[in-house]
Amino acid sequence: MTAGAEEVRLNLGHIELAAQLFGPADGLPVIALHGWLDNANSFVHLAPQLRGLRIVALDLAGHGHSAHRPPGASYALADYAFDVLCVAEQLGWKRFALLGHSLGAVISVQLAGALPERVSHLALIDGVVPPTGAQTDAAERLGMALTAQLRREGRPKTVYRTIEEGVRARMSGMVAVSQEAAAHLAQRGLMPVPGGYSWRSDSRLTLPSPMRLSEPQALAFVHRVQCPVCLVVAGEGLLARHTALLEQLPFTQNVLPGGHHLHLNDTVSAGLVADCFNRFFGFP
């Protein structure tokens, strides 16, 4: 359990999600969404530095201590958005803010674009829209995804002999993180199994997407957002490479030093992100 956070479980009917609560009960309602293959500990450095907010940091479905989707189901962005909406309904939040990193930022933008009347603020970290694709590639992509899904069935997870091995594996993943960040993610993400430890995340999360939006479709969500938006771009992260996209965004942008996980890699970088968001939310 993260120091200063309250652990809760939310039964949404179709799935049960785990979450951590930060901040005063009467604070501005915020749902925090982590990145792909991360978990709620993604906000361990950032959330305690944010003032005036009641933050519900979710383990997204298939991540951390949350349940996995049932057999035969997948992890579509729309399903994540529905989960978030159900969490808000259960909490009685008719209007709420979203704080999202990477995948969590993508989900946040899509939900805010789909239902702009429900979202009061968007605080985004190094993420906006999902990877896009050409419309002419749709059939080929679906075939690739279906083949990968068949091959994945029944394949065992990697087992690490020690927690330290699991941490090192996360440090050198597709998006590298610091040892400190990997250790925080491992605290919530590794589980004991025969022979050692394995990551809790659903192995189906690594399957390729069966379809991608075109760029105009992805940007349609961006242009439907009606609430104030603060986007933190990591100077050495993923978004910084997409200058053409950044130039099209009608969002306030703050470029900060650090990598894709700058809010988690160290407390100093997390403090810089917190400064941006505290000003954004009006609690400097």
Score class of each variant (00 low, 15 high):
residue 147 T to Q: 14
residue 146 L to F: 13
residue 120 S to T: 14
residue 112 A to Q: 00
residue 150 L to C: 13
residue 140 E to Q: 12
residue 148 A to R: 12
residue 115 L to D: 08
residue 151 R to Q: 13
residue 143 G to H: 14
residue 132 T to V: 14
residue 131 P to R: 13
residue 150 L to P: 08
residue 134 A to L: 13
residue 109 V to E: 00
residue 140 E to H: 11
residue 138 A to W: 04
residue 116 P to F: 09
residue 139 A to F: 11
residue 117 E to N: 04
residue 138 A to R: 01
residue 149 Q to K: 14
residue 126 D to K: 03
residue 108 S to V: 14
residue 147 T to K: 14
residue 117 E to F: 03
residue 142 L to H: 05
residue 125 I to Q: 01
residue 145 A to I: 07
residue 109 V to K: 02
residue 123 A to R: 01
residue 138 A to S: 05
residue 113 G to M: 02
residue 117 E to H: 07
residue 117 E to Q: 09
residue 130 P to W: 07
residue 129 V to I: 15
residue 117 E to C: 03
residue 114 A to C: 12
residue 121 H to A: 12
residue 125 I to N: 01
residue 126 D to R: 04
residue 116 P to M: 08
residue 110 Q to G: 04
residue 134 A to R: 13
residue 110 Q to E: 11
residue 145 A to L: 08
residue 129 V to W: 02
residue 111 L to P: 00
residue 119 V to P: 00
residue 119 V to I: 15
residue 115 L to M: 09
residue 150 L to Q: 15
residue 146 L to N: 13
residue 124 L to V: 01
residue 121 H to N: 15
residue 150 L to V: 14
residue 132 T to L: 07
residue 109 V to Q: 01
residue 139 A to D: 13
residue 127 G to F: 00
residue 131 P to L: 10
residue 122 L to A: 03
residue 114 A to F: 12
residue 135 Q to H: 08
residue 140 E to T: 14
residue 149 Q to A: 14
residue 114 A to M: 11
residue 115 L to W: 11
residue 150 L to E: 15
residue 128 V to I: 14
residue 140 E to V: 12
residue 147 T to Y: 07
residue 121 H to I: 10
residue 110 Q to I: 05
residue 119 V to M: 08
residue 130 P to G: 04
residue 144 M to P: 02
residue 137 D to G: 03
residue 129 V to R: 00
residue 126 D to G: 01
residue 111 L to R: 04
residue 146 L to H: 12
residue 129 V to L: 13
residue 116 P to H: 08
residue 124 L to E: 00
residue 132 T to N: 05
residue 108 S to Q: 09
residue 109 V to T: 07
residue 124 L to H: 02
residue 131 P to D: 06
residue 151 R to V: 06
residue 121 H to P: 04
residue 112 A to W: 01
residue 126 D to A: 03
residue 121 H to G: 06
residue 121 H to L: 15
residue 113 G to D: 01
residue 140 E to I: 10
residue 146 L to V: 15
residue 117 E to G: 03
residue 144 M to A: 14
residue 139 A to L: 14
residue 116 P to N: 12
residue 118 R to C: 06
residue 109 V to Y: 01
residue 120 S to Y: 09
residue 137 D to S: 09
residue 139 A to G: 11
residue 116 P to E: 09
residue 138 A to Q: 03
residue 150 L to T: 12
residue 114 A to S: 12
residue 133 G to C: 06
residue 108 S to A: 15
residue 118 R to L: 06
residue 135 Q to D: 10
residue 118 R to Q: 08
residue 140 E to R: 14
residue 130 P to E: 06
residue 137 D to V: 02
residue 139 A to Y: 08
residue 137 D to P: 01
residue 111 L to C: 05
residue 128 V to H: 02
residue 140 E to C: 10
residue 122 L to T: 05
residue 118 R to D: 00
residue 136 T to L: 09
residue 113 G to I: 04
residue 118 R to G: 00
residue 124 L to R: 03
residue 137 D to E: 09
residue 143 G to F: 11
residue 134 A to T: 07
residue 130 P to H: 08
residue 112 A to N: 05
residue 117 E to R: 03
residue 123 A to K: 02
residue 125 I to C: 01
residue 130 P to I: 08
residue 145 A to W: 02
residue 135 Q to E: 13
residue 123 A to F: 04
residue 136 T to N: 07
residue 139 A to R: 11
residue 151 R to Y: 06
